[in-house]
Design a protein around this nucleic acid. Structure first.
Lengths: 262, 262
DNA sequence: CGCAATGTTGATAACAATCAAGCTCGGTGG
DNA sequence: CCACCGAGCTTGATTGTTATCAACATTGCG
């Protein structure tokens, strides 16, 4: 069955009652401090290389959580950079906005993934981070994190790995944008989502899109019409099944063949 | 006047006598250990945040240099990752190769820039690094670098900044590939080269391309014909002047206008 | 029930790719 | 020294993929 994914607690996935700044009651209650030690994302999140004593020290840094309602911004381009954020539940998009108001999505972020890494170098955020659904993040003050990294080799190493991993991911996307057809891009996108859901312990071949066709198209450098047409074509070809935003990958091998072994 | 750039020593820029594995005599002599303290790239290279005592310690790590002839690989995709490389002179391209033999250039690297950052996360290089001309790099063993970063806060911070800067740069390129016309991409490319040359202390509006039209096109997700046509158009429009690979930016404002304020 | 947001599908147009021919500049060999 | 050769570049003609414009369907919500 198609299932709800990307959630670490039972926030309803169907569209929130209105566009912005409203949380369903069940998550409105105040919330204890984050505790990585008991977090189900332990295996995939930033502190995943740490032993239990180091993990406790890390917990002293990342004490705070923050909720972000669907459509609201976690930070905006131009904001001063102080902290990294680890997605705890929900999903985010990172968007650049040009002076002319054109928007371009540079990434989607799922639980266990880190937001704000690109801002370290300049000390200022270059993009807006917007929640695709009611979401929650762990707040990780960067100065403290850096200080701790000096005394915990495993943490320093993990940080290097996370930063480096982001570079790899972006380069993969550049490859996609720079040398793949629309068809290949969408296939690659679906496969990438599949892999990420699997990493989180969810079914790899059956998931619900957190974003609209328009957002997918924007991210992939395509129009929403092209995305819609391609999804229809994939359906006709028996590669996938869809029902609104629910996606079933019926022929993963076929999709991979389509991407062409990059 | 158009001038030679990207070189920290007088290697002739005109095409080397043959395709590969041949160095002009003047750089064939064996070379003393690298010394950041006396390197003219100090201000822009990896150790740029360090004080003089820390710089001396850094010099003990990065003792080795390596020459790479035009067309030769510094490393290849699949190679184990041990070391980072700082470009000392010359220029490199980073290319991904698909199983079908298709190549895609993911980046160009100029003096002071660091090669290999994307390999930290997996411990294995994902791309080939190929010299665009006879070049030299400083070898920076990563394990030692990490160890030193634990005791030198400024170095750790600088490493975070360099990694983060690469993420920003890649995201900028994604924006370019995903939402700009051919014209905008090429204009953005020329402006980006201009900025990099300027950073190195060279003229910002007058430089020699280190890469072919084909390589530019590959990098920008265009064909070489499109690149050539656009350069001709820019010339007709009075935006640039060209003579082979020499480029003069005649109207930087016009080029920026074209890119459209991303 | 109707509205607004999202998604599907069709017709047409534009941009860039492809195919093709020729040019320029260096290097090489007769 | 000159002629040839090839890599790299330019330009033209044509094709094809994807964007754009447009109409309509579906869903959820007030």
């Amino acid at each position: 069955m198609l299932q709800s994914i990307g959630l670490t607690q039972p926030i309803p996935i169907r569209r929130a009652p209105s566009r912005e700044n409203r949380f369903p009651r069940l998550v409105a209650a105040s919330r204890p401090t984050a505790a990585c030690a008991s977090c189900c994302l332990q295996a995939v999140c930033l502190p995943c290389g740490l032993g239990s004593t180091d993990l406790d020290r890390f917990d002293e840094i990342a004490t705070q959580r923050r909720k972000v309602a669907r459509g609201a911004s976690l930070y905006r381009g131009g904001d001063a950079f102080d902290t990294l954020y680890a997605v705890r539940s929900g999903a985010f998009k990172s968007i650049g906005v040009s002076r002319h108001g054109d928007q371009k999505i540079t990434g989607f972020y799922y639980p266990g993934e880190i937001l704000g890494l690109d801002a370290i170098s300049s000390g200022r955020h270059g993009y807006n981070a917007v929640a695709l659904e009611d979401s929650e993040v762990c707040v990780i003050p960067f100065a403290q994190l850096e200080r701790m990294a000096l005394t915990v080799p495993a943490l320093q190493h993990q940080l290097f790995k996370v930063l480096s991993g982001d570079i790899s991911r972006d380069q993969g996307l550049m490859l996609l944008l720079g040398s793949m057809t629309a068809e290949q891009r969408l296939a690659a996108f679906l496969l990438s989502l599949s892999r990420r859901y699997q990493r989180l312990g969810f079914a790899a071949s059956s998931f619900v899109l957190r974003m609209t066709r328009e957002e997918i198209g924007n991210y992939l450098g395509l129009t929403l019409e092209t995305v819609s047409r391609l999804l229809s074509r994939f359906r006709r070809q028996g590669l996938i099944a869809t029902r609104q935003r629910e996606i079933d990958l019926k022929d993963v091998a076929g999709l991979m063949e389509m991407v062409g072994h990059w």
